[in-house]
């Protein structure tokens, strides 16, 4: 019975919890840094060596989730059954150290819904329980599970594997140039929101102003606030990929759902729509002059007012 002695709110740099805690010898609590936290080695007052401690990296409220693995849970059940059968002999093994894993994260004030995205664990992850701070570890209160999903990293930059919404800017024969508008399950990219809502221009980055001295003036004009991306023709769909025609897949102005396959080069992220649930979501006919179109099948869209049919690589809507 250990009472978690963890602060409820944290400022950057504040130590939250050591990475391991023992409860009077019979179980170990292991803490994993989640969003808004980092594992660092710090000197502790009465010790001379550095100890792994989880610190907060942003200002926000501290949240703790318990991680329960599906396999582990099943294995434990099986073990229990076996142990019942073969009682007596394995008494000593029964007293194995129990390791409970907790994810500790700091959630900023502004955010409400967080989704846990951890590609390695998503298969094994059965449930994440939110723990009330100041309660005993033994008395876990599980809350509505779907609300309690957290993001692996706070930085709202696109990462490999993220699903992003993009706007098509420019087409060439080999690739489509896009602008990343939002990342699914993350806070909207501030910059894009800003430029969409009001046209206040932020002062240009100091770095870009240096870089642009070597490039042409034309590029300097369109220094955007958004991250850019490329969908290459071979990444549009997974079948018959050498016969893809970009012009039959996207048109400028379309809103497309993509997955980030690589951080790409300095300027562009590399994106792909080679999945059923990825592709054009919103499109207007006649290059944006017409009305909104709806997907009929995976490569046609229709405008219900005019009956206009255009070709797109559509995302499966449901």
């Amino acid at each position: 019975m250990t009472v978690l002695d963890i602060p409820k709110v944290a400022v950057p740099g504040q130590p939250l919890v050591p990475s391991f805690l023992t409860d009077e010898g019979d179980s170990i609590s292991k803490f994993i840094p989640g969003q808004g936290t980092k594992l660092e080695r710090l000197l502790v007052q009465d010790k001379n060596s550095k100890v792994p401690v989880i610190i907060a990296t942003i200002l926000g409220k501290v949240k703790i989730y318990e991680r329960v693995y599906k396999e582990e849970a099943e294995a434990e059940e099986e073990e229990e059954e076996e142990e019942k059968e073969a009682e007596g002999k394995q008494d000593q093994e029964q007293e194995e150290l129990k390791v409970r894993t907790f994810i500790i994260s700091v959630v900023p004030k502004s955010s409400k819904n967080y989704y846990y995205q951890d590609s390695q664990d998503s298969q094994n992850l059965q449930k994440l329980k939110e723990l009330e701070i100041d309660t005993n570890i033994e008395e876990v209160t599980s809350k509505n599970q779907e609300d309690v999903i957290i993001n692996k990293s706070l930085s709202n930059l696109p990462q490999e594997g993220d699903i992003v919404l993009v706007k098509i800017l420019k087409l060439t024969l080999k690739q489509a140039f896009v602008e990343i508008i939002a990342i699914e399950n993350k806070k909207a990219l501030d910059h894009s929101a800003r430029t969409l809502i009001n046209n206040d221009s932020a002062p240009p980055s100091l770095y870009s102003s240096i870089a642009s001295t070597s490039t042409t003036i034309l590029q300097q004009v369109d220094i955007g606030e958004n991250f850019k991306g490329i969908i290459r023709s071979q990444d549009v769909r997974s079948t018959d990929r050498d016969r893809v025609k970009i012009i039959e897949s996207f048109k400028p102005g379309d809103i497309v759902r993509c997955i980030v396959i690589s951080l790409g080069d300095g300027t562009n992220y590399y994106l792909s729509t080679a999945r059923n649930d990825l592709g054009v979501i919103f499109a207007k006919s006649h290059g944006g002059a017409g009305e909104i179109m709806y997907a009929v099948d995976w490569k046609t869209m229709i405008c219900i007012n005019t009956g206009e049919v255009e070709q797109r690589k559509c995302a499966k809507p449901f």
Binding site: H191, Y207, S208, A211, E225, F227, G266
Partner: peptide, 19 residues
């Protein structure tokens, strides 16, 4: 302002600049 995109070659760390 930041993190915001840069132009030019790939960098794996953010650039910090102060004025």
């Amino acid at each position: 302002y930041g993190p915001r995109p840069i132009r030019g070659s790939f960098i794996d760390k953010a650039i910090l600049s102060t004025e």
